[in-house]
Nucleic acid binder design. Structure first.
Length: 89
DNA sequence: CACATGACCTAAC
DNA sequence: TGTTAGGCCATGT
């Protein structure tokens, strides 16, 4: 686990997210005691080198949209993954 | 330190 | 409904 303090905090918080659940970037930002760092949170997720370890795919926008995802299939992969995990409204 | 980038948020047209 | 503009934060150059 290497990275900045901020990233570590974000990744740790993401790991705490129960399977089948999703959080918004804002919620995560608030969780790490940085209510106004939604952008930085998204940044940390995109830079997260522990993709499967850190469920960055369980983080969505405040609107409930997938947001984005850097990887195979992009947001499509994220959508499918969430559905597989049980994320169904 | 200044500038640029990004998976954001909100308001306004 | 789609686009623009401003604000916000962390990171890298």
């Amino acid at each position: 686990m290497k990275g900045t303090k901020f990233q570590i905090k974000v990744w740790k918080y993401l790991m705490k997210i129960p399977k089948g659940k999703v959080k918004t970037y804002k919620q995560v930002a608030i969780g790490i005691n940085r209510p106004k760092s939604a952008r930085a949170v998204a940044n940390a997720c995109s830079k997260n080198p522990y993709a499967p370890t850190v469920p960055c795919h369980r983080v969505i926008k405040s609107d409930g949209s997938i947001g984005g995802f850097s990887g195979p299939g992009g947001k499509i992969y994220k959508e499918k993954l969430l559905k597989k995990e049980g994320f169904s409204l």
